[in-house]
Measured scan of single mutants.
Amino acid sequence: KKVLATKVLGTVKWFNVRNGYGFINRNDTKEDVFVHQTAIKKNNPRKYLRSVGDGETVEFDVVEGEKGAEAANVTGPDGVPVEGSR
């Protein structure tokens, strides 16, 4: 997949743990970017399912997906594990 941007910060708009996807709002362009649970690189080690929490700040790369921009290599800021869904 073509990389459109790297090390982008954003805020998780919503994430559905059961369906394994959601959207992140980019801090720079204010665009919403699709995020799938497989894109989460560093999950909260205390959680079994990969997820990001609503309102959580995350860092990610933006790649060209089949339906437009999507997140890849999702971590917390500066590469720490994500907090995950509460």
Results as ranks from 00 to 15, higher is better:
E64F: 08
A39D: 05
T38K: 12
E31N: 07
R50I: 10
V80K: 14
K67C: 08
F15G: 00
N73H: 05
F23S: 04
G20R: 10
V33D: 04
P81D: 13
Y21F: 08
A5L: 03
F15S: 05
N19Y: 10
A72M: 11
N19I: 15
E56D: 12
E64Y: 09
N16L: 06
G79T: 11
G68D: 02
Y48E: 13
Y21W: 10
G65S: 08
N19V: 10
K2Y: 00
K30W: 03
D32S: 03
G22E: 01
D61Y: 04
V17L: 09
K41T: 13
V82Q: 10
G84C: 11
N44H: 11
T11F: 08
K67S: 08
V12D: 02
N27V: 06
N43R: 13
G55A: 07
D54H: 15
R18N: 11
N43L: 13
G22A: 02
G84L: 12
A39H: 05
E70D: 02
P77G: 09
K30F: 09
Y21P: 02
E64Q: 13
R18E: 10
L4N: 06
V3K: 08
N16Y: 01
R46I: 11
G55E: 05
T6G: 06
F60I: 03
Y21I: 06
G84P: 11
A39S: 09
T75P: 01
V12M: 06
T38V: 05
E59S: 11
E70C: 10
K67P: 03
S51G: 12
K7G: 10
G79F: 10
F34I: 06
E56Y: 07
A71L: 00
A69Q: 13
V80R: 14
P77A: 11
N25E: 12
T6F: 08
R86M: 13
G65R: 01
V17Q: 13
T38I: 04
D54A: 15
K47P: 09
W14G: 04
L49N: 12
G55V: 04
K41A: 12
G68E: 04
D61S: 01
G76I: 15
T29I: 03
G22N: 03
T57H: 07
V35Q: 03
E59H: 04
Y21S: 04
V74R: 01
E66D: 11
E66K: 14
K1R: 09
T6D: 04
Y48I: 11
G68H: 06
V82M: 12
H36W: 00
A39R: 03
P77H: 10
K30V: 02
F34L: 05
K13A: 06
K7Q: 08
D78N: 15
S85Y: 10
A69C: 12
D78Y: 12
D32H: 01
A69M: 13
F23P: 03
D28Y: 00
D78V: 13
V35W: 08
G53K: 15
G84Y: 08
K42L: 14
V82C: 12
G10H: 00
G84F: 14
K41C: 09
K7W: 02
E83V: 14
W14L: 03
E70T: 07
S85I: 10
K41H: 09
R86W: 11
G84S: 11
V35P: 01
V58T: 02
D78A: 12
T6R: 14
N43F: 13
G79I: 11
